[in-house]
Amino acid sequence: MIRRWSFVFSVATLIGYLLIPLLINQIFYTHLAILIGIHAILAVSVYLMLKIGQLSLAQAGFMGIGAYASALLTRDAGVPFELAFFLAGAIPALIAGVVGPLLMRTKGVHFVLLTFAFGEVIVLIFVEWTSLFGGNNGISAIPPASILGLQLIAPSSFLILTAILLSIILLCCHVAFAGDLGVVVEGLERNEALQSSLGVNALAYRCLIFSGSAFIAGLSGSLYAHYLSFISPEAFGFWTTVNALILNVIGGAQFLMGPFLGALLLAPLPEIFREWVHYQRVLYGVALLLLMRGLPQGFLGLILSRLGGRGNR
């Protein structure tokens, strides 16, 4: 019952997310919706790691790798957007796959610290390797996205791309976790030792999830780069990951729709209240504190419990 409702709710939210800005047809709202989508995709990549009980602070770094890869490949190497977009996911996924077995030897706090340092190193490389990444000035004049020769210059067309991508990612995660992968992942989070004793290679699965989350983070980076047509290193720092984590906590980190809901609630704020950015930081922090104390399942948890079910995973 709850499961069906949450599915209907999810689809309705996604359709509303796409249609409302298109119907209002003002660039500002379309712009907000695109930002929500990009943040939500990064937040989903954080969610994947939370799903196996680990917090990775390198996700914005992976987003950055995707953004730079996609920007440089399309601008300088003449790679078509479709391929560059795929590579924007594949390259960070590959990097995560290589460092994963090293970082993943640690868990919990140590893993958080290592991914924090790893994320910082990625940003440092963007800053220092000026000949390739343009240093603090970043990269500009990134060509717009184009699908099958159709250039997505109008924000509304870019929103459609974002919404479709977000839906595909959410659907893929939903299907994957509803099946055998979900069984393994739940066991990893709850009792890894027992899961291993039943013959499951926990490290390999954790690396798989890490790699997958890097893939998704990279895709969000590609969208970000081609939408703004300009990127610089500071956009991919530690605080970007923390914001994505906040979206999870506020939306409800137990639920696949949690990160998206969190993005819907929070991502527009800095754009709407531009002069109030500093106050917003304080507000974010206080909201996060209060949620951690009073509403550990996030707003989606609140809604679901009002609907009469327990927080159903």
Binding site: G187, R190, A193, S196, S197, L198, G199, N201, A202
Partner: peptide, 20 residues
Amino acid sequence: SASTIARRGIARCFQSATVF
């Protein structure tokens, strides 16, 4: 690794087994 040993035919039962 623990999982390989498990697949070789050594099983271990834990104090509590409710995982899911």
